[in-house]
């Protein structure tokens, strides 16, 4: 990492101005590993992960099930604890980063609380974090607008379709304006048409807000369409197989999927996944 070291030496300390320095990683993992002790022996969920994610990046973690992509996201979020190596989020440990509420997490399922209306679900983190009532209302309105859910404030989750519920959960993650968005297969349970639409919306949202996004998926087109970098992971032990840069214009639309550039990157991801997958088991 010579350029990173250089950047650190020439600019102000990254902890002081993490966004302004531009190159100080939001997430930095060094030789990270996580091993579960089970009755059948140790399971290496993550093994020797080295990864830097810089501000404003959209990084996808892609791989077959069991490759540790969700586990890695959960380690970043301090929902799991690594058993080896080092990881920092915004320059501090994941635990401290979580206490500072530095990320919004979008789960595979919307995980909306059924007894709360959509507006009150979006307001949940704001209530927990002690925002004033006026501030809560303003932020709920703004973020529901952002995910095209204006007018559904007083509906209960069951009155919304799956795609709308997931959009509400994204609004909830955005409501307290974290710089980092962690998304664990947020559109995995949705049909392809809804997924395409949400992908475009998410991309526009990322473009407008300039947030850093770490996005777990097992869909190659989704990863290539959304990402600035694609991390291809492989299972047993869960490890990084390849990191593929992916530099499409920020205001890209779904049509880009028909271009040769898109197909080339998708092929590279596909090859990576095939190489990384061991069929011996």
């Amino acid at each position: 990492m010579p350029e990173l070291v250089e950047a650190r030496m020439t600019t102000t300390p990254p902890q002081a101005r993490p966004e302004a320095s531009g190159r100080a990683p939001v997430i930095s993992a060094r030789d990270l590993s996580l091993t579960y002790e089970t009755a059948d022996g140790p399971v290496h969920a993550l093994s020797h992960i080295d990864l830097d994610i810089r501000p404003g990046e959209f990084v996808s973690l892609i791989g077959p099930s069991g490759c540790g992509k969700t586990t890695l996201l959960r380690v970043i979020a301090d929902l799991e604890t690594a058993t080896g190596g080092e990881i920092t989020v915004n320059g501090v440990s994941p635990h401290d980063a979580r206490l500072k509420r530095s990320y919004g997490y979008v789960f595979q399922a919307p995980a909306l609380y059924p007894w709360r209306t959509i507006a009150r679900n979006v307001a949940l983190p704001l209530e927990i974090m002690g925002f004033s009532k006026a501030e809560r209302e303003e932020r709920v309105g703004r973020n529901l607008d952002l995910v095209n859910l204006k007018g559904f404030e007083r509906k209960f989750p069951w009155q919304l379709s799956g795609g709308m519920q997931q959009r509400a959960s994204i609004a909830r993650a955005l409501s307290f304006d974290p710089d980092l968005l962690l998304m664990d297969e947020p559109f995995g349970a949705l049909d392809e048409i809804v997924r395409d639409k949400l992908n475009e919306q998410l991309l526009r949202l990322w473009d407008v807000t300039g947030k850093t996004v770490v996005f777990v998926t097992h869909s190659i087109p989704e990863a290539v369409f959304l990402s600035t970098r694609i991390v291809v992971m492989s299972p047993r032990p869960g490890r990084i197989h390849d990191i593929i840069p992916c530099d499409f214009p920020r205001d890209r639309t779904l049509e880009i999927r028909e271009t040769q550039g898109f197909i080339d990157i998708a092929n590279r991801v596909r090859h990576g996944l095939r190489e990384g997958h061991s069929y011996v088991d």
């Binding site: 929902l79 979580r98 789960f107 609380y113 983190p125 927990i128």
Partner: peptide, 19 residues
């Protein structure tokens, strides 16, 4: 999942209990 959500907000035990 619902409990993890509260954890990502670093909600206190009392907040998790009430909300």
């Amino acid at each position: 999942l619902q409990l993890d959500l509260m954890r990502t907000y670093s909600a206190s035990r009392l907040q998790t209990f009430l909300a």
